[in-house]
Design a protein around this nucleic acid. Sequence first.
DNA 1: TACTAATATTAGCTAATTCTAATATTTGGA
DNA 2: TCCAAATATTAGAATTAGCTAATATTAGTA
Lengths: 111, 111
Amino acid sequence: MHAFDILGDPVRRRILELLATGEHSSGDIVVVVQREFGITQSAVSQQLRVLRDAGFASVRADGTRRIYAVEPRRLREVDDWLDRFRAFWLPKLDALATEVARGKRKRRHQD
Amino acid sequence: MHAFDILGDPVRRRILELLATGEHSSGDIVVVVQREFGITQSAVSQQLRVLRDAGFASVRADGTRRIYAVEPRRLREVDDWLDRFRAFWLPKLDALATEVARGKRKRRHQD
DNA sequence: TACTAATATTAGCTAATTCTAATATTTGGA
DNA sequence: TCCAAATATTAGAATTAGCTAATATTAGTA
Protein backbone atom coordinates (compact mmCIF):
# COMPACT_ATOMS: atom_id res chain seq x y z
CA MET A 1 0.00 0.00 0.00
CA HIS A 2 1.31 3.40 -0.94
CA ALA A 3 2.46 5.67 1.87
CA PHE A 4 -0.05 8.35 0.90
CA ASP A 5 -2.96 5.93 1.16
CA ILE A 6 -2.05 5.44 4.79
CA LEU A 7 -1.62 9.14 5.50
CA GLY A 8 -4.96 9.94 3.90
CA ASP A 9 -6.80 9.16 7.12
CA PRO A 10 -6.96 11.88 9.80
CA VAL A 11 -6.99 9.42 12.70
CA ARG A 12 -3.85 7.74 11.43
CA ARG A 13 -2.18 11.10 10.91
CA ARG A 14 -3.04 12.12 14.46
CA ILE A 15 -1.62 8.88 15.82
CA LEU A 16 1.62 9.47 13.93
CA GLU A 17 1.77 13.03 15.28
CA LEU A 18 1.55 11.59 18.78
CA LEU A 19 4.24 9.04 18.04
CA ALA A 20 6.45 11.80 16.62
CA THR A 21 6.76 13.08 20.19
CA GLY A 22 7.83 9.68 21.49
CA GLU A 23 6.54 6.22 22.32
CA HIS A 24 2.98 5.78 23.57
CA SER A 25 0.86 2.89 24.75
CA SER A 26 -2.23 1.88 22.84
CA GLY A 27 -4.31 3.09 25.78
CA ASP A 28 -2.75 6.56 25.74
CA ILE A 29 -3.42 6.83 22.04
CA VAL A 30 -6.99 5.68 22.48
CA VAL A 31 -7.62 8.38 25.11
CA VAL A 32 -6.38 11.18 22.87
CA VAL A 33 -7.99 9.99 19.67
CA GLN A 34 -11.24 9.20 21.40
CA ARG A 35 -11.39 12.68 22.83
CA GLU A 36 -10.64 14.33 19.50
CA PHE A 37 -12.54 12.09 17.10
CA GLY A 38 -15.15 10.41 19.24
CA ILE A 39 -14.51 6.90 17.93
CA THR A 40 -14.31 3.60 19.82
CA GLN A 41 -11.30 1.76 21.18
CA SER A 42 -11.91 -0.80 18.48
CA ALA A 43 -11.60 1.75 15.72
CA VAL A 44 -8.34 3.10 17.14
CA SER A 45 -6.95 -0.41 17.48
CA GLN A 46 -7.84 -1.10 13.86
CA GLN A 47 -6.02 2.02 12.75
CA LEU A 48 -2.99 1.04 14.83
CA ARG A 49 -3.00 -2.24 12.98
CA VAL A 50 -3.07 -0.49 9.63
CA LEU A 51 -0.08 1.59 10.70
CA ARG A 52 1.77 -1.52 11.85
CA ASP A 53 0.98 -3.53 8.73
CA ALA A 54 2.03 -0.65 6.51
CA GLY A 55 5.33 -0.23 8.35
CA PHE A 56 4.60 3.21 9.81
CA ALA A 57 4.71 2.02 13.41
CA SER A 58 6.21 -0.76 15.48
CA VAL A 59 5.03 -2.29 18.75
CA ARG A 60 6.60 -3.91 21.75
CA ALA A 61 4.88 -5.52 24.68
CA ASP A 62 5.18 -4.12 28.19
CA GLY A 63 3.11 -6.41 30.37
CA THR A 64 -0.41 -6.16 29.10
CA ARG A 65 0.36 -2.85 27.40
CA ARG A 66 1.44 -2.39 23.81
CA ILE A 67 3.95 0.39 23.32
CA TYR A 68 3.93 1.97 19.88
CA ALA A 69 6.76 3.82 18.20
CA VAL A 70 7.01 5.59 14.89
CA GLU A 71 8.88 3.77 12.15
CA PRO A 72 10.34 6.48 9.94
CA ARG A 73 11.05 4.49 6.76
CA ARG A 74 7.66 5.00 5.10
CA LEU A 75 7.60 8.66 6.03
CA ARG A 76 10.91 9.12 4.28
CA GLU A 77 9.28 7.74 1.14
CA VAL A 78 6.91 10.67 1.29
CA ASP A 79 9.82 13.02 1.81
CA ASP A 80 11.54 11.50 -1.21
CA TRP A 81 8.42 11.85 -3.35
CA LEU A 82 8.33 15.54 -2.49
CA ASP A 83 11.84 16.03 -3.85
CA ARG A 84 10.50 16.53 -7.35
CA PHE A 85 8.49 19.57 -6.17
CA ARG A 86 11.08 21.23 -3.97
CA ALA A 87 12.41 23.27 -6.87
CA PHE A 88 9.10 25.16 -6.75
CA TRP A 89 9.65 26.53 -3.26
CA LEU A 90 13.46 26.41 -3.09
CA PRO A 91 14.05 28.11 -6.46
CA LYS A 92 17.81 27.92 -6.40
CA LEU A 93 19.73 26.34 -3.62
CA ASP A 94 22.99 28.08 -2.87
CA ALA A 95 26.25 26.15 -2.62
CA LEU A 96 25.88 25.59 1.10
CA ALA A 97 22.37 24.24 0.85
CA THR A 98 23.28 22.04 -2.11
CA GLU A 99 26.06 20.51 -0.09
CA VAL A 100 23.73 19.74 2.80
CA ALA A 101 21.01 18.42 0.53
CA ARG A 102 23.49 16.17 -1.23
CA GLY A 103 24.74 14.78 2.05
CA LYS A 104 21.20 14.06 3.09
CA ARG A 105 20.40 12.27 -0.15
CA LYS A 106 23.53 10.14 0.12
CA ARG A 107 22.68 9.10 3.66
CA ARG A 108 19.17 8.23 2.54
CA HIS A 109 20.26 5.67 -0.02
CA GLN A 110 22.77 4.01 2.27
CA ASP A 111 20.31 2.20 4.52
CA MET B 1 -9.82 19.03 2.33
CA HIS B 2 -6.55 17.92 3.81
CA ALA B 3 -3.56 17.71 1.47
CA PHE B 4 -3.07 14.03 2.21
CA ASP B 5 -6.62 13.19 1.19
CA ILE B 6 -5.83 14.53 -2.25
CA LEU B 7 -2.52 12.69 -2.50
CA GLY B 8 -4.12 9.42 -1.49
CA ASP B 9 -5.21 8.73 -5.05
CA PRO B 10 -2.63 7.20 -7.42
CA VAL B 11 -4.05 8.90 -10.51
CA ARG B 12 -3.82 12.30 -8.85
CA ARG B 13 -0.28 11.56 -7.71
CA ARG B 14 0.71 10.59 -11.23
CA ILE B 15 -0.77 13.79 -12.63
CA LEU B 16 1.20 15.83 -10.11
CA GLU B 17 4.36 13.94 -11.05
CA LEU B 18 3.77 14.95 -14.66
CA LEU B 19 3.18 18.56 -13.68
CA ALA B 20 6.36 18.53 -11.61
CA THR B 21 8.24 18.33 -14.93
CA GLY B 22 6.40 21.36 -16.31
CA GLU B 23 3.08 22.46 -17.71
CA HIS B 24 0.92 20.01 -19.65
CA SER B 25 -2.37 20.17 -21.48
CA SER B 26 -5.32 18.14 -20.30
CA GLY B 27 -5.00 16.02 -23.44
CA ASP B 28 -1.36 15.18 -22.77
CA ILE B 29 -2.23 14.16 -19.23
CA VAL B 30 -5.13 12.04 -20.46
CA VAL B 31 -2.83 10.18 -22.87
CA VAL B 32 -0.33 9.27 -20.18
CA VAL B 33 -2.82 8.41 -17.46
CA GLN B 34 -5.01 6.47 -19.85
CA ARG B 35 -2.03 4.38 -20.94
CA GLU B 36 -0.95 3.67 -17.36
CA PHE B 37 -4.28 3.30 -15.59
CA GLY B 38 -6.72 2.43 -18.36
CA ILE B 39 -9.37 4.92 -17.31
CA THR B 40 -11.51 7.23 -19.44
CA GLN B 41 -10.97 10.88 -20.40
CA SER B 42 -13.88 11.69 -18.13
CA ALA B 43 -12.21 10.14 -15.11
CA VAL B 44 -8.98 12.05 -15.75
CA SER B 45 -10.90 15.29 -16.18
CA GLN B 46 -12.65 14.70 -12.88
CA GLN B 47 -9.33 14.15 -11.13
CA LEU B 48 -7.97 17.33 -12.67
CA ARG B 49 -10.92 19.14 -11.20
CA VAL B 50 -10.22 17.71 -7.77
CA LEU B 51 -6.63 18.93 -8.06
CA ARG B 52 -7.82 22.38 -9.13
CA ASP B 53 -10.46 22.67 -6.43
CA ALA B 54 -7.99 21.59 -3.78
CA GLY B 55 -5.39 24.12 -4.93
CA PHE B 56 -2.81 21.61 -6.14
CA ALA B 57 -3.00 22.74 -9.75
CA SER B 58 -3.94 25.79 -11.78
CA VAL B 59 -5.20 26.05 -15.35
CA ARG B 60 -5.02 28.53 -18.14
CA ALA B 61 -6.73 28.40 -21.50
CA ASP B 62 -4.76 28.11 -24.73
CA GLY B 63 -7.34 28.03 -27.49
CA THR B 64 -9.43 24.96 -26.90
CA ARG B 65 -6.68 23.45 -24.73
CA ARG B 66 -6.40 23.72 -20.97
CA ILE B 67 -2.84 24.00 -19.75
CA TYR B 68 -2.27 22.72 -16.25
CA ALA B 69 0.51 23.71 -13.88
CA VAL B 70 1.43 22.55 -10.42
CA GLU B 71 0.55 24.88 -7.58
CA PRO B 72 3.14 24.21 -4.88
CA ARG B 73 1.37 25.68 -1.85
CA ARG B 74 -0.48 22.53 -0.80
CA LEU B 75 2.55 20.37 -1.35
CA ARG B 76 4.50 22.56 1.02
CA GLU B 77 1.89 21.81 3.65
CA VAL B 78 2.88 18.18 3.34
CA ASP B 79 6.52 19.14 3.59
CA ASP B 80 5.76 21.13 6.74
CA TRP B 81 3.85 18.24 8.27
CA LEU B 82 6.88 16.04 7.76
CA ASP B 83 9.06 18.40 9.78
CA ARG B 84 8.06 16.72 13.02
CA PHE B 85 9.51 13.41 11.76
CA ARG B 86 12.74 14.68 10.22
CA ALA B 87 14.59 14.24 13.50
CA PHE B 88 14.21 10.49 12.94
CA TRP B 89 16.26 10.44 9.76
CA LEU B 90 18.37 13.55 10.28
CA PRO B 91 19.43 12.72 13.87
CA LYS B 92 21.48 15.83 14.47
CA LEU B 93 21.85 18.54 11.95
CA ASP B 94 25.25 20.18 11.99
CA ALA B 95 25.62 23.94 12.18
CA LEU B 96 25.69 24.30 8.41
CA ALA B 97 22.55 22.32 7.87
CA THR B 98 20.75 24.04 10.70
CA GLU B 99 21.51 27.38 9.12
CA VAL B 100 20.12 26.25 5.77
CA ALA B 101 17.06 24.65 7.32
CA ARG B 102 16.35 27.77 9.33
CA GLY B 103 16.62 29.94 6.24
CA LYS B 104 14.19 27.65 4.46
CA ARG B 105 11.69 27.78 7.30
CA LYS B 106 11.88 31.55 7.46
CA ARG B 107 11.23 31.88 3.73
CA ARG B 108 8.30 29.52 4.08
CA HIS B 109 6.41 31.68 6.55
CA GLN B 110 7.00 34.90 4.65
CA ASP B 111 4.59 34.29 1.76
C1' DT C 1 -7.51 -20.94 39.15
C1' DA C 2 -10.67 -17.03 38.69
C1' DC C 3 -10.82 -12.35 37.73
C1' DT C 4 -9.65 -7.92 35.74
C1' DA C 5 -7.26 -4.74 32.69
C1' DA C 6 -5.46 -3.82 28.27
C1' DT C 7 -5.73 -4.64 23.72
C1' DA C 8 -6.97 -7.02 19.41
C1' DT C 9 -10.14 -9.23 16.17
C1' DT C 10 -14.32 -10.20 13.48
C1' DA C 11 -18.68 -9.45 11.03
C1' DG C 12 -21.53 -6.51 9.01
C1' DC C 13 -23.32 -1.77 7.96
C1' DT C 14 -22.75 2.86 5.97
C1' DA C 15 -20.87 6.53 3.63
C1' DA C 16 -17.63 8.27 0.60
C1' DT C 17 -14.80 7.84 -3.55
C1' DT C 18 -13.99 6.80 -8.17
C1' DC C 19 -15.32 5.04 -12.14
C1' DT C 20 -18.21 4.68 -16.84
C1' DA C 21 -21.49 6.31 -20.12
C1' DA C 22 -23.68 9.87 -21.89
C1' DT C 23 -23.96 14.61 -22.76
C1' DA C 24 -22.73 19.55 -22.61
C1' DT C 25 -19.62 23.39 -23.43
C1' DT C 26 -16.19 26.06 -25.68
C1' DT C 27 -13.03 27.37 -29.28
C1' DG C 28 -11.09 27.71 -33.84
C1' DG C 29 -11.44 26.96 -38.62
C1' DA C 30 -13.69 25.80 -43.24
C1' DT D 1 -22.63 29.56 -39.71
C1' DC D 2 -21.59 24.73 -39.19
C1' DC D 3 -18.48 21.36 -37.73
C1' DA D 4 -14.84 19.11 -35.25
C1' DA D 5 -11.55 18.98 -31.52
C1' DA D 6 -10.64 19.47 -26.74
C1' DT D 7 -12.33 19.37 -22.45
C1' DA D 8 -15.79 19.45 -18.72
C1' DT D 9 -19.99 17.95 -16.40
C1' DT D 10 -23.66 14.95 -14.66
C1' DA D 11 -26.04 10.82 -13.01
C1' DG D 12 -25.74 6.61 -11.42
C1' DA D 13 -23.20 2.12 -10.31
C1' DA D 14 -19.51 -0.32 -8.00
C1' DT D 15 -16.01 -0.55 -4.88
C1' DT D 16 -13.72 0.40 -0.67
C1' DA D 17 -12.61 2.29 3.81
C1' DG D 18 -13.74 3.04 8.34
C1' DC D 19 -16.93 2.56 11.84
C1' DT D 20 -19.75 0.03 15.80
C1' DA D 21 -20.96 -3.82 18.53
C1' DA D 22 -19.74 -7.89 20.12
C1' DT D 23 -16.28 -11.05 21.29
C1' DA D 24 -11.62 -12.97 21.83
C1' DT D 25 -6.95 -12.93 23.56
C1' DT D 26 -3.26 -12.13 26.68
C1' DA D 27 -0.92 -10.92 30.96
C1' DG D 28 -0.88 -9.81 35.66
C1' DT D 29 -2.83 -10.55 40.25
C1' DA D 30 -5.57 -12.26 44.24
